[in-house]
Amino acid sequence: MSITETSRYISLILRHKPETIGITLDEHGWANVEELIAGVNKTHPLTMDLLEKIVMTDDKMRYSFNEDKTLIRANQGHSIPVDVELEEVVPPEYLYHGTGEKYVASIDKQGLIPKSRLYVHLSSDTDTALKVGKRHGKPVIYRINCKTMVEHGYKFYRSVNGVWLTKSVPIEFLSKTPMGVQNTTIPPG
């Protein structure tokens, strides 16, 4: 097994299906590290050293340890009900959402919804949104008018790995960003 395959398997467990290896997550999404290693080892070789390497080198910074590394959790992207203790943060004026062209008709009809996840994931710049969109086919980038959303009572959160989260984005706050525009980097809120 490659480190990437093991990381994806851990992501599946910590975000969606802890029961796959017979563990449970607490209300904040934390799993016992020893139980996780033992459970993963049934199908994928995993040691504490490898788990630490996965956490430290994951390009999306998907995971966090507690201070003494006895607990681990996914930072966001859960489809199971957990409270990862996100603090409400005032977002920048605009954030971005990258998707595939095949989803445009649905988004233009119902806005951005979390589907099986707890939150809609947003990016602070068009480059990141473009990378996300490419994972879903021909990319399309939406710009979200966060300033107006906040004025209408919508809440935003930022996970420890910098992904912006909100419960939904109605169509009136969305506009498509033309492809090929200059990168728009927005400093963290």
Rank of each mutant, 00 (worst) to 15 (best):
S2M: 11
E5M: 10
T6A: 06
I10W: 01
S11G: 08
L12R: 15
L14P: 09
R15E: 06
R15W: 00
P18W: 08
P18E: 10
I21W: 05
T24K: 12
T24A: 11
D26I: 02
V33T: 11
I37R: 07
I37W: 09
A38S: 15
V40A: 00
K42R: 15
K42T: 13
K42M: 14
T43F: 15
H44A: 10
P45L: 06
L46F: 03
D49A: 15
L51R: 07
M56R: 14
D58M: 09
K60F: 12
K60C: 07
K60M: 11
M61V: 09
S64R: 10
F65Y: 05
K69E: 06
K69A: 01
T70W: 10
L71A: 09
L71V: 01
L71H: 10
R73G: 00
H78M: 01
I80F: 01
V82T: 02
V82N: 05
V82L: 02
E85G: 03
E87L: 14
E87Q: 14
E88R: 15
P91Q: 08
P92A: 07
H97Y: 07
T99R: 10
Y103A: 15
V104H: 02
A105K: 15
S106Y: 14
I107S: 03
G111D: 03
L112Q: 08
L112V: 10
I113M: 13
S116G: 06
S116L: 13
S116K: 14
R117Y: 08
L118V: 06
Y119T: 04
Y119S: 05
V120Q: 08
V120L: 07
H121Q: 12
L122T: 00
S123K: 06
V132M: 13
G133W: 01
R135G: 12
H136M: 11
K138C: 14
K138R: 14
P139T: 05
P139H: 03
V140I: 15
I141E: 09
R143M: 14
V150D: 09
V150G: 07
E151G: 04
H152I: 00
Y154N: 12
K155L: 12
K155G: 05
F156G: 05
R158Y: 02
V160C: 03
N161Y: 01
T166H: 04
T166Y: 02
P170K: 05
P170G: 03
E172L: 08
E172P: 00
L174R: 03
L174G: 03
L174H: 02
P178C: 07
M179T: 09
G180K: 11
T185S: 05
P187C: 02
G189V: 03
G189S: 08
